[in-house]
């Protein structure tokens, strides 16, 4: 587990791209006014990889902001667990989590999203969204949003869904001459689009796009 302490007003951007070791496990404390942005990319090509991501974050100072954006394409027999724990301990905090996974082959994915708003953490704004697409009959995704809201004057929302690729869209694209692999790539690029645009760095975005294409080929 790695430790990180954001002092008052500090801005920090973490990009996590390797989930097979403990570099993907973090305990982070945020002081007042600090802004933490995490981008998580689970795009490893090793088909036998197992990985565990832990993002344990506590806002201890007011007006702290936490953003977690993640996407992943799990392939082969990969098993990856992503666990987020965001705790609002003080008033006026903000957090947003947006995580999207596509699961191929016989891969297994798991998302456990814990969001805690303590009794005196009034005016917290906390959102959590997890969307998943299964690309094969043997792929599985387990999603478990866990919200514990103890304050009453807060704005909180969450959503979780797991579905399949839209077969009618796939056929429509094929009917225009687009091959299945490319059609899926277009559909999944669209699926990941809102996560990618949060990067705000075109060079990194392009690199991630290429890795998405490789994972889907």
């Amino acid at each position: 587990m790695q430790e990180l302490h954001l002092i008052q007003g500090e801005h920090k951007h973490l990009v996590i791209e390797h989930v097979a070791d403990d570099s993907a496990q973090w305990h982070i404390v945020q002081e007042a006014g600090s802004v933490l942005t995490i981008h998580l990319f689970c795009l490893d090509s090793d088909a036998a990889m197992t990985g565990s991501v832990v993002l344990d974050i506590e806002q201890t100072g007011e007006h702290a902001e936490t953003y977690i954006y993640g996407l992943g394409i799990l392939t082969g027999k990969q098993q990856i667990e992503v666990r987020t724990h965001v705790r609002h301990s003080v008033p006026n905090g903000k957090s947003n989590q947006l995580l999207k996974f596509a699961v191929k082959d016989e891969a297994k994915g798991s998302f456990v999203g814990e969001l805690v708003v303590d009794p005196h953490a009034q005016h917290a704004e906390a959102m959590q969204t997890n969307r998943n697409v299964l690309l094969s009959p043997k792929a599985t995704m387990h999603t478990q949003p866990q919200l514990e809201i103890y304050a009453d004057d807060v704005k909180c929302s969450h959503g979780a869904s797991t579905g399949q690729i839209d077969e009618s869209a796939l056929f429509y694209m094929q009917q225009r001459g687009i091959g299945v692999v490319e059609a899926r790539q277009l559909l999944l690029t669209a699926f990941f689009h809102d996560v990618l645009t949060t990067l705000g760095e075109p060079i990194v975005e392009e690199r991630i796009q290429r890795r998405i294409a490789q994972q889907l080929a």
Binding site: S168, A169, Y172, M173, G177, L186, F191, H193
Partner: peptide
């Protein structure tokens, strides 16, 4: 032929219910 090869060979269908593809 696969559906995409039929299309590339010159077959086109104007769908009764064209499909919406958000994000593409």
């Amino acid at each position: 032929m696969s559906p995409e090869v039929r299309a590339r060979e010159g077959l086109f269908l104007s769908f009764q219910y064209p499909v919406e593809i958000p994000g593409v």
